[in-house]
Design a protein around this nucleic acid. Structure first.
Lengths: 252, 252
DNA sequence: CGGAACATTGAGAGGGATCAATGGACGTGG
DNA sequence: CCACGTCCATTGATCCCTCTCAATGTTCCG
């Protein structure tokens, strides 16, 4: 397994197939994601320090892991391009998708305080990420304070996000879950300049199902049903929302 | 509604029925929970500063809220005695129990970084809590550093806890959920000196169901089934675990 | 072109929800 | 101290949503 070998070589960050490391070709100040990403929280002056803490940019091939359960924490990761899923694995081997992550979002927080990752992040398509080294960020006193504040904020958001998923998993029916999923996805995409009504799913039906606590067939059936009701226009991975209001109704 | 009136008066912490405030009668150094509670993370020297930050102890009557969704964050709360549940409420009014909390556990972290609570904590029986004021804790530099470290740790644990619930809600069958619930509960109780095989449930079947994503009748039926199989001996709220191994098997 | 991975759809089964009735525990007030 | 009401738990009967199993279709890529 090329993947495994790759994974085990970290945290040295060797240049290897599917896991290219190179010096920063783009500073945060020029990055397309700067308005959504962590650096947006810093002022122009502090940005220099942030830029220095962002040591390298990496490209991750589709299907590869950014980090895995049990690995030592070495950095936070900001998604530059591409799409990730995070999964947790139960003691008996079943695993569950706990989130999907797009450009500008920060991965790896779960390892930040325990120095060890407790989930696995896998690229759903070829992706680029920035590695943010907390140690270096905290060299500057003012930046450190600002950084900590935003790590708190990110963790707080993560807890709230998970609570809303718990609510979804505990109380919603299949249609509601899928509708909530689509609404959330399209909202985040729209914040990044994408259409409010059209999206391309980067994940399989199985992955959506795992995230929503449903079987892949059920996810497929719900798509078909919402299609037949004129709420959606689904063509495999391409989804068009025809009736925004109705979709919001479903998600209640 | 006495409850509502009470709630609205906070955070002034008036003395009122069911919500008694009084000066610390017991220091952390002498508290029965000190080995499980947050203060256990500090050395003897720092403990003085912690004790000062624990401004008041309060008693909370059964059914009363410690804090509610949307309320400003004023302090962290350490459970001294009694039992709490935390609930989140969805936009359409449905709510879900997100956790049960016993002596020594810290409540209110969800409001720590956003300065506002995003869930509600309700006492399941008459309870006592300690209010920990972060502002005062952070007066001392060394204590502040130590405190921050442990807040990170607590939040990390909270994220992991929620992920395991997501796994439960997403993939487990009713019996597995109930078994996992009991195992977790008895483990935490045992860490506090209680029996490894006997426990008294402080919550209703409905609350267990909400936590596990099941209806109360289903919870009741699972208890009955495990009873008939000789795994448990259930007498309403009193549960005896007759076959520890089998229960662990169920929770897989 | 062929194979692998993924999606769709159908038929049938089953687990949990729902509806409903009963019973026990507890607290309050007569 | 008992009667009563309330809250909670148990159990049964039935329904239905989702899972499971299975076959077919589509897309993508070597």
């Amino acid at each position: 397994m090329d993947d495994l070998e790759l994974i085990e070589r970290r945290p040295q960050f060797d240049i290897a197939k599917g896991f290219q490391v190179h010096a920063s070709p783009v500073g945060c100040a020029n990055c397309m994601q700067r308005t959504h990403c962590l650096p947006s929280k810093f002022n122009a002056q502090e940005l220099g320090a942030v830029d220095e803490a962002v040591e390298v940019r990496k490209t991750i091939k589709r299907g590869m892991s950014l980090f895995r359960n049990g690995e030592p924490f070495v950095a936070l990761y900001a998604v530059r391009t591409g799409f990730f899923k995070t999964i947790v694995t139960s003691s008996d081997g079943r695993d569950q998708v706990t989130g999907f992550h797009m450009a500008g979002e920060i991965l790896g927080l779960d390892g930040f305080m325990s120095d060890q990752h407790h989930c696995e992040a896998i690229a759903l398509e070829d992706a680029e990420i920035c590695m943010i080294s907390p140690a270096q960020l905290e060299a500057d006193q003012a930046v450190a304070r600002q950084f900590q504040k935003h790590v708190y904020h990110l963790m707080s958001s993560e807890i709230m996000r998970e609570q809303s998923i718990m609510l979804l998993l505990g109380h919603m029916r299949a249609e509601e879950r899928v509708a909530a999923f689509l609404n959330n996805l399209v909202k985040r995409l729209h914040a990044r300049g994408y259409s409010r009504s059209e999206l391309v799913l980067r994940m399989t039906r199985d992955e959506i199902g795992s995230y929503l606590g449903l079987k892949l067939e059920t996810v497929s059936r719900v798509f078909s049903k919402l299609c037949s009701e004129g709420v959606l226009d689904v063509n495999v991975r391409k989804v068009r929302i025809l009736n925004q209001g109705a979709l919001l109704q479903y998600a209640s």
